[in-house]
């Protein structure tokens, strides 16, 4: 039986590249996001370029009450699901997100929605004693900074959730991998000032798929972000709180 992968939030540049890297090694795909028109375009593209089977359906991370039915229909189409990539995320306007009415949406999308669908995936894979869950978090979740702490808090919570899930599912042989991308050349970062060492989505997508062949649990992409964040995490708080970050 070939590989079959569910991509949640499949229209982002990183998700598209990850889907392409899976398709390039022959995996069947199930793409999910809110934007059906885009999903249809991406699905056609993957079928033509890689000759793989591609399904797609609408999925709204914030509409948690719909997740159970959604996941059932994924399994109806792909009973031998090998794994899940959680790629959705919402940055929004981080100035505006200081207002909780706006910030709540950031938390609902990046964390609450993720926790909801991941709980269903975990319950599915655990008794089968196989499968993988790849969660795309962010280096922004490693330390709170004034410029994006609402997004950072939601991604930080996602990182913790994935860590706990990894601990729970270890005994059943289900891989849980946390991906922490640094700056990637996507719509989220396009035109932002102060970016450096920006990676291409293609490179990140290929590396995400390659982590399955390695032992790593938490993967910074590209690798040097592990060291950048190591330094940032170790700046003492009395100094850190004075910094403009």
């Amino acid at each position: 039986m070939g590989e079959a992968v569910l991509i949640l939030g499949a229209t982002s540049a990183i998700a598209r590249a990850t889907a392409a890297a899976f398709a390039a090694r022959g995996a069947a795909l199930y793409l999910a996001s809110r934007d059906l028109d885009e999903l249809q375009r991406i699905a056609s593209d993957l079928r033509i370029r890689y000759g793989v089977e591609v399904h797609y359906a609408a999925f709204d991370a914030e509409a948690t009450e719909t997740h159970a039915a959604f996941f059932q229909s994924v399994l109806a189409n792909m009973p031998d699901l090998s794994g899940v990539v959680l790629a959705f995320g919402y940055l929004g306007d981080q100035q505006a997100a200081r207002d909780f009415k706006v910030g709540a949406k950031v938390i609902a999308s990046n964390f609450t929605g993720a926790a909801s669908i991941l709980s269903l995936c975990a319950d599915h894979f655990e008794p089968l004693q196989r499968g993988f869950i790849i969660g795309i978090s962010s280096v922004a979740g490693d330390r709170g900074r004034q410029s994006n702490y609402v997004y950072g808090a939601a991604k930080g919570a996602l990182s913790l959730y994935l860590q706990g899930l990894r601990n729970r599912l270890y005994a059943s042989g289900v891989r849980v991998i946390t991906i922490k991308p640094g700056f990637v050349d996507t719509a989220m970062t396009y035109g932002l000032p102060g970016l450096f060492l920006v990676a291409s989505p293609q490179d990140i997508g290929e590396r995400i798929v390659r982590t399955l062949g390695k032992q790593a649990d938490v993967v910074y992409l590209p690798w040097f972000w592990r060291y950048i964040m190591l330094i940032i995490k170790h700046v003492p708080e009395p100094i850190f709180k004075r910094m403009k970050l």
Binding site: T11, D37, E38, A187, Y190, G191
Partner: peptide
């Protein structure tokens, strides 16, 4: 001034 859409819409 460059803009770079990712969606057809």
């Amino acid at each position: 001034e460059l803009e770079r859409p990712e969606r057809y819409a």
